[in-house]
């Protein structure tokens, strides 16, 4: 009997004839579709741009006043209606809002991730939870806060629930992805020793997961801080976002806006330094 592997032969001679240039990839439909879409969008943009500019618009004047406002904000930051201490207080509110939502979100997401990783859960559950979470993620955080403000009224409650909601969906996805990346052999090894599922999760999965768990949670904290500011303005949830909104749209005091922007930048810098340190831990 001839085995299949013995039948394979390598052609010793290339077929002769006119030499064609060899393509590096096939012309695929996807690329054509993407290019066409981009072309259509570009055309629409070019056509509608002129209609968006109001008739009384004067470019030089607009640029001048823009430069003026930028100058006020960044070169002449000054407080008029509030004190620095009270601004620190509202900045603290925003930070705490981000912290609380990240904390609740990460705990809940951890359990959802356990139930939706291919390493532990049946495919149907994985698909079910992951698509549910994908739907939640598809709707922006600010929108969730507004949706929940129908239930709780505008304010901090709606902000906490709304931001947490989106955080859970986001973190479930990234936690489950990091669990999926674990080698199946590790879990198999634990099963081969007769370990119970709880012990496998605690002794094999969690130790391997801590670095990515920390860095993803931290990234979500940064996102939640930005969202907390936006939501403070949009849903009256308080915090520095609300103050920012009042100063810019109510008092038109750009000196004050400048101070707050600098405070937020300073905190963002602190976050950046922490995340750099976290990365160092991860790669040690």
């Amino acid at each position: 009997m001839i085995k299949p592997e013995n039948q394979i032969s390598i052609p010793t001679q290339l077929p002769s004839g006119p030499r064609l240039s060899i393509p590096l990839r096939f012309r695929d439909r996807r690329r054509v579709t993407i290019l066409l879409t981009l072309a259509v969008l570009g055309y629409i943009t070019l056509m509608t741009l002129p209609t968006m500019i109001p008739s009384h618009f004067k470019l030089t004047e607009a640029l001048m006043s823009f430069a003026e406002n930028i100058k006020i904000m960044f070169l002449q930051p000054r407080l008029v209606n509030t004190t620095f201490i009270s601004l620190l207080g509202v900045l603290g509110q925003s930070i705490l809002l981000a912290f609380l939502t990240t904390l609740i979100g990460s705990v809940l997401a951890f359990f959802f991730a356990l139930a939706s990783t291919r390493r532990l859960a049946p495919t149907s559950l994985v698909l079910g939870i992951q698509s549910f979470m994908a739907v939640i993620r598809a709707i922006p955080t600010v929108l969730w806060v507004l949706i929940y403000s129908v239930v709780f009224g505008l304010g901090a409650n709606a902000a906490v629930v709304g931001i947490t909601f989106h955080s859970v969906a986001y973190l479930t996805k990234v936690y489950a992805d990091s669990m999926d990346e674990l080698s199946p052999e590790i879990i198999e090894t634990m099963q081969a020793m007769g370990l119970k599922k709880s012990a496998i999760i605690r002794q094999a999965i969690i130790p391997n997961l801590i670095p990515s768990y920390l860095s993803w949670t931290f990234i979500r904290f940064e996102i939640n801080f930005a969202d907390a500011i936006a939501v403070g303005a949009a849903a009256g949830a308080g915090g520095i976002g609300y103050q920012l909104f009042m100063s810019s749209s109510f008092y038109f005091n750009f000196h004050e806006v400048g101070v707050m922007v600098y405070m937020i930048l300073a905190f963002a810098l602190v976050l950046e330094i922490i995340s750099y340190r976290l990365r160092a831990v991860k790669h040690q």
Partner: peptide
């Protein structure tokens, strides 16, 4: 870890 198979859930956690 080798002895966890015969121990309780709590011991594992």
């Amino acid at each position: 870890h080798g002895c966890l198979g015969t121990k309780s859930n709590l011991a594992g956690i």
